[in-house]
Amino acid sequence: MTGIRIISILLLLLWSGSARAGEAVLVVHRDNPVSSLEIAEVRGIFLGKKVFWDDGNGIEVLLQKSGETHQSFSQNTLGKSPRQLSMYWKRILFSGEGIPPQEVPGDKEMLELIAANVKAIGYIDSSSKDDRVKTISILREE
């Protein structure tokens, strides 16, 4: 299993080295000690099942409102279409189980909010990355 993880990380590093437009990457605040997350953890975070970082701070999830990056992240990482993701959060909201994540219009706003909030996590198009934020690799054991 560890071997698979290492290979996954290496592959991800290779991929992240050759950033392609239309590919969503996870981003957090530069001071966030986390550098990688299991795919199950990422889904847990963006579906409101995992709500705390390991240091006990609450996770502040940011979603993009629409667009290609959102489509790609929602479908490829969370395994839900944007419409299914929206319905998932509405179900949680209206049944009193929680509050949906804040939505932002695009990469620019996402970068600003993540850079200003050590507890936040979001995603941007890989071509929008800059050094105000830290990217996180996703470990997929598949």
């Binding site: 319905m87 179900r91 209206f94 049944s95 009193g96 189980e97």
Partner: peptide, 8 residues
């Protein structure tokens, strides 16, 4: 839990 929200 979501029974009163028709659109769900």
């Amino acid at each position: 839990q979501g029974r009163d929200s028709d659109f769900l």
